[in-house]
Each structure stands twice: as C-alpha cells, then as structure tokens.
Amino acid sequence: MSRIKLKTAKGMDIRDAVLDASSILPVNLRGYSAQLTVDGEAYALKGGFALSIKIVKPNNKPQCLRCWTDGKADESQIDYLVEVADIINKNNDKDCPYFIGFNIVERLLKVDGIELPGLIMDWVEGETLNKYIMANSGHSGAQIKLVAQKFAKMCNILNSRKISHGDLSAVNIIVKPDGNLKVIDYDSLYSPSMGRKVQYIAGIKDYQHPQRESATYYETYMDYFSQHVIYAALLIMANNASARPSQQLKNLLFTESEFSSPSSFRNSSVVKSARKLRVSDIDRELDIIERALNLPLSQIPPLVDSSSPMVKTIHKFAFCSACGNKFSSDEFDYCTVCGAKRNSYTIE
C-alpha cells in the first residue's frame, strides 16, 4: 500500500499556483514552467478526478503534472495507481506502445502553502480521438479508416495481454501527429495480476453496455463492448462523410439511449443509415453490438484485428440478425424462419 497521503485543491487554484515555477517541487523538474495559453493561463486538461498541466523547458520533452482536485478523489486512488503504474511499466514496450509511463510523487506542486502529491509523465502531443475526427471531417475517409485499423490492432494487443482500460472512449484515446495511438487516463485500468478490484468507475455511458454500471468488480472483458462501439463508429464515419460530427462531442456516433435494448439500437437512425451503406465490416460490428445487448458482459466477444495472424476461430451467432430466431444448431447457415444468411465473428 502507498504511504502517500492524498491532498487535493481546487482546479483553478492549481492552475494559478503553477504559474510560479518555484511551486513545481521535484528537483528533476527544475527549469520547467507552465505552458501558457493565449490568455496567459496555464494550459491544462480537466479529468473526472484530476487536472493535467503541461510544463515545458527548452531542449527537453514537455512533461505533464497531474494533481487530484477536490471532489471525488479518495485515498484509495493513490494505492490503485501505484499498482497501475507497475502494470504499465511492465507492458510499455515496442509491441505495446500505447501507454504513457508515470511516477507518483508525494511532493509535486505547492498550492496555497500545501504540498500536493501527484503524477509526473511525458506530455504526449496529439488530439483526442473525438477532436481528431472533427478536425478531419472534411477529408477523405482513408485517414479515419487507418485510425480504425490501428485501433483494432491496439485492442487486439491489449486483449492478448489481459489489460482492460475500463473507460475506453474517444476522449481517452490520443491520435499523435504521426497517426499512432495512445490511451490516457488510467484510473480504472485493470489486469488480473492486481487481484480482485472493486469497480468505482463505470466509464462514459455513451460507450458502455447497460450492465456495466451495476458490475461489482473490474474484469478483463469490460472493454469489449466499448471496443465494438468505437470501431463501428470509425468504420461508419470512414465510409459516410455525413456521419462525421460537426461539433466536438464526447461520443462519436452512438449514445446511451441506443443501448437500452436491442430494438432501440436496431431502430436508431444511426444504425438504419449505416445499414444502407452495405459494408460487410460495418454490418458485422452492428450485429455484434445488437446481440451483445442481450448478453451478460462476460459473454461479449472482443474486437478482433482482422489483419492479425492470431485470428483463428469462426463463431456463428446464436440468433438471426433479421428476425431474431434462435438457431438450434451450428449446422444451419441460413435462418429456418426467414431465410436470412447467418452471421459469424472470429476470435483467436
């Protein structure tokens, strides 16, 4: 367990304090100062539990200071992130370059005479996925399709290492200037090596299965539904420019209300419009999401990177995507009620 005591401050007080470079306490950060906005304020990003501040120093990598803010944070978060840091540092390699390593320090920033603890990590340049999509909404779908492919590969690797992010969404994925991806915000990241962990973050509802909020513990499969939601949205926007957002939103295409039932999803305007594209990959993902809404979280299949040689097994859906009839055997490739071709998905 961590011996670091949690101390918090108001976000505005943190932003004001960091304007004085002497308030940055770690010796290895001497010479760094806050990156300023055009308004002369410290450049910062607000999360659910903390404030991330960009600090810079000539001829050095920009760094990120992450301090807990007043409100939801509690002592257990520090203990949890100590374990998360160990998972990330062990898995942050050339085959899994999706994390940003970090250190937790007891004396990070002095605010109104109080020395706050917090995280130090590299500041990664880029845009969150939702901002990236909006910025590229007028371009061809090739860029978005490439991001979709990289997203599928990332999910495949994280799944193979039994690591779940816990709050996978377009605001927690960074698209770097070179097009590669990073995931950020690790307050709910989980691996079985951490043991049984009680869930206290259920993720943004526009990306989550309805059962996620009532889950008791974090599990390795808790990202699977979100993976399909994000991947389907990217494929749809890559193939249909009119589906791309005209304003910055936390969600990509789908919203919580569409996940209330299979029929709500099936009959939504987004899904109906996407079906008209007649793109097999899109139809497959929509089928998986619709069926998943009738399944417990533990039975939802993971997103599969179709370019990966690890894909080996074909599984047929138990229900007809057209009429809902349940297949009595795997030997049927067509529905015995309506005649629709049976859909399938692959996993390693």
Rank of each mutant, 00 (worst) to 15 (best):
Q248L: 14
Q248N: 09
Q248M: 10
L249T: 14
L249W: 06
L249V: 11
L249Y: 11
K250M: 04
K250V: 01
N251C: 05
N251V: 00
N251T: 03
N251F: 11
N251M: 04
N251H: 13
N251I: 00
L252Y: 03
L252F: 00
L252A: 02
L252S: 02
L252W: 01
L253A: 04
F254W: 07
T255D: 06
T255L: 07
T255C: 05
E256L: 06
S257Y: 05
E258H: 10
E258L: 07
E258D: 08
F259R: 08
S260W: 00
S261G: 07
S261P: 11
P262W: 04
S263L: 12
S263M: 13
S264P: 02
S264Y: 08
S264N: 14
F265N: 08
F265Y: 12
F265D: 05
F265P: 08
F265L: 14
R266P: 04
R266S: 15
N267E: 15
S268P: 09
S268M: 09
S268I: 09
S268T: 13
S269R: 15
S269Q: 15
V270K: 14
V271Y: 07
V271S: 05
K272P: 04
K272W: 02
K272I: 13
S273P: 00
A274G: 11
A274D: 09
R275Y: 12
R275S: 11
L277T: 07
L277A: 05
L277I: 08
L277W: 11
L277K: 10
L277E: 07
R278I: 06
R278S: 09
R278D: 14
R278F: 02
R278T: 09
R278L: 05
V279S: 01
V279K: 02
S280T: 15
D281K: 03
I282G: 04
I282R: 06
D283L: 12
D283E: 15
D283I: 08
D283W: 01
R284H: 08
R284L: 14
R284G: 01
E285F: 00
E285R: 07
L286I: 13
L286V: 08
D287P: 01
D287N: 15
D287K: 12
I288K: 08
I288P: 05
I288C: 03
I289F: 02
E290V: 03
E290L: 06
E290P: 02
E290I: 06
R291I: 07
R291P: 00
A292N: 00
